[in-house]
Design a protein around this nucleic acid. Structure first.
Length: 547
RNA sequence: GCGCCCGUAGCUCAGUGUAUAGAGCGUCGGACUUCGAAUCCGCAGGUCGUGGGUUCAAAUCCCACCGGGCGCUCCA
């Protein structure tokens, strides 16, 4: 329905825009002050600098043109200094809007702005050396919700988890387990390296070791076997925890595979062909300074081992080869220094580095009350995603993580989240959905057939009712914008607004009475419920009928 | 020292050009014999880190500085 309004504005603006210029997307907002209309646009402000004329003059002209062709949906157009165009919508508009949402139902908010573009979304990718912790959880929620939103906008999204199952860290995991095994069995045997991982999960794997591997084979000679088993156990647990948290992947991509199929060596060979490699101090270096990085980077160490950087290049080359239009990576903010070298390598190999978009998710700091909770893998002391979800609930964790921009650091007070779980904002939103369900239940008991409500076009919506509808009308545009800008957190704020209006309306207005307007109010509740349910679905949060 | 992110109400954070700067939590005070009070209403609380600049218009853009987090490994 807003498309129609946007088109009316654009038609009026068309004369000002040169054929070469893209049509500006008019921003439409709901004014805080209702004397400023049902909707307002600041399109004249965007045009003013281009045309070098005062915004007010432009607004007057646009308003005049719009007034000539309102398609029956606009009653009145006001122009207010310094250049706002305020729109008062017609009765027909509101009824058409309500009907449109009803007709679309679960498809309301779905769109094809993505036009089938293939997107690879990589997120979490936590190392299989320990459980997923809350920092990963934040990336998990952002990635999952973004994937849902992109899919709803017609993008063809593949979700991927990159498993760092090669290299030193998993070897270190193997040694940690082996050492744990010796210690638990009081076996006094020297091992060439200590292993850096600690915690109850290491003990668990150690204890399970001889259930899978013959006891005679449990020694340093078979460290590869032990490592493989340990990674498998941890990975299974990661998959289970994520699945329980309703986070799925289309593909689990193994780093090891890149070693086995020779693609890392292949990539280094390609870089050599491009003369982007040097030998120095017995190591092989990528000349990333030639491509905008601040220093050159080692691909193959003096020891002959490949670096993670080398396999990461091969991984990204693999992504490009799979033919995606866009690659989105969600990384922890502590990896931001890593991006220039990846982009440098891709540029050196002739790939369009612009296709790669990395979202850096800032740190999560945990507290219990005023006391910070240490997050150290080394000490084996950290709060896992599973623990957090078990304590606070999955819906609340999702909502909480999406109440901040991913670019802001986040303080998560576990005590507070537990203590106030009943007052968590997520309940505020869910309660609205349950409340509407409850209204319908009540209406049924009073004899209304809520599946056959009569939509009467002569009903005049109150100010609050129009406000509710207009908030619902912003929804599709919001989802489209969130997809383009990759800002999933905005959806929680939208919901808080919508639900706030609904709760107030409920307090002020009796929906079900004996009068004939009850049908109209029930229809309105139905549209709000549709939007609530669709939005919660995108957040992966339950929309309960009862609480 | 260099790079990225942040600095907005007591706390945690939205808002990133334009009409009196918002929410949640917290404080205080009100509203259930009527569709769910997990709700609603009201009061209090802000030099939008500081100083310059651009603009008809700056929390928002630019510059400098101050403060906090993270990163600057032949670590992963």
């Amino acid at each position: 329905m807003m498309d129609l309004l946007v088109k009316l504005i654009q038609d009026a603006v068309a004369g000002y825009v040169d054929s070469g210029m893209p049509m500006p997307q008019p921003g439409i907002s709901i004014p805080a002050n209702e004397t400023h209309g049902d909707f307002s646009t600041g399109i004249a402000f965007n045009l003013a600098p281009v045309m070098k004329r005062p915004p007010y003059e432009i607004a007057v002209e646009i308003a005049k043109k719009m007034g000539d062709k309102t398609a029956g949906i606009i009653d009145k157009i006001d122009v207010v200094r310094p250049g706002y165009i305020n729109l008062f919508m017609s009765r027909k508009f509101w009824h058409d809007a309500l009907q449109d949402i009803m007709d679309k139902g679960t498809d309301y908010g779905r769109n094809n702005t993505g036009k089938g573009k293939k997107v690879l979304l990589e997120y979490i990718s936590a190392n299989p050396t320990g459980p997923v912790h809350v920092g990963h959880g934040r990336g998990a929620v952002i990635g999952d919700v973004l994937a849902r939103i992109l899919s709803a906008q017609g993008y063809n999204v593949a979700r991927e988890y990159y498993i760092n199952d090669a290299g030193n860290q998993v070897l270190s995991l193997g040694y940690s387990v082996l050492n744990g095994y010796y210690k638990n069995r009081s076996i006094d045997r020297a091992v060439s390296r200590p292993g850096e991982y600690q915690g109850a999960y290491i003990d668990d794997i150690s204890n399970a070791l001889d259930s899978r591997i013959p006891a005679a084979d449990i020694d340093e000679e078979h460290i590869g076997l032990i490592t493989g088993f340990s990674v498998q156990v941890i990975l299974d647990e990661i998959k289970k925890v994520l699945q329980d948290f309703n986070i799925e992947f289309d593909n689990w991509f193994s780093e090891k595979q890149l070693y086995h199929d020779g693609s890392i060596a292949g990539v280094i060979g390609e870089l050599e062909k491009k003369h982007a490699v040097k030998q120095e101090d017995g190591a092989t270096w990528f000349l990333s300074t030639h491509y905008g990085d601040e220093k050159d980077r080692v691909l193959k160490k003096q020891s002959g081992e490949l670096t993670y950087f080398a396999s990461d290049i091969a991984y990204h080359v693999n992504k490009y080869a799979r033919g995606y239009d866009m690659l989105i990576n969600i990384w922890g903010a502590d990896h931001h220094g890593y991006l220039p070298r990846i982009k440098a390598a891709l540029a050196a190999l002739g790939y369009d580095a612009e296709k790669l978009r990395v979202m850096f998710v800032q740190m999560v700091r945990l507290t219990r009350g005023d006391k910070p909770v240490a997050m150290s893998k080394r000490a084996g002391e950290y709060v896992t995603l599973k623990e957090l979800v078990d304590e606070v609930g999955g819906d609340a964790v999702r909502f909480f993580f999406l109440q901040r921009s991913h670019e802001s650091q986040l303080v998560f007070d576990i005590e507070l989240a537990k203590k106030q779980s009943q007052e968590n904002p997520v309940y505020y939103v869910q309660y609205a959905h349950a409340r509407i369900s409850s209204i319908f239940g009540f209406a049924e008991t009073k004899g209304w057939n809520t599946d056959a409500l009569q939509h009467r076009q002569d009903y005049v919506f109150s100010g609050q009712e129009k406000r509710l509808l207009s908030q619902c009308l912003l929804y599709p545009g919001l989802i489209a914008e969130i997809a383009v800008k990759r800002e999933p957190h905005r959806l929680t704020y939208y919901l808080m607004d919508l639900v706030g209006i609904l709760h107030k309306y409920y307090t002020d207005t009796r929906v079900v009475d004996s009068g004939s307007d009850t049908d109209q109010r029930l229809l309105l509740m139905k549209t709000v419920k549709i939007v609530l349910k669709n939005a919660l679905e995108l957040l992966g949060i339950n929309a309960p009928e009862k609480m």
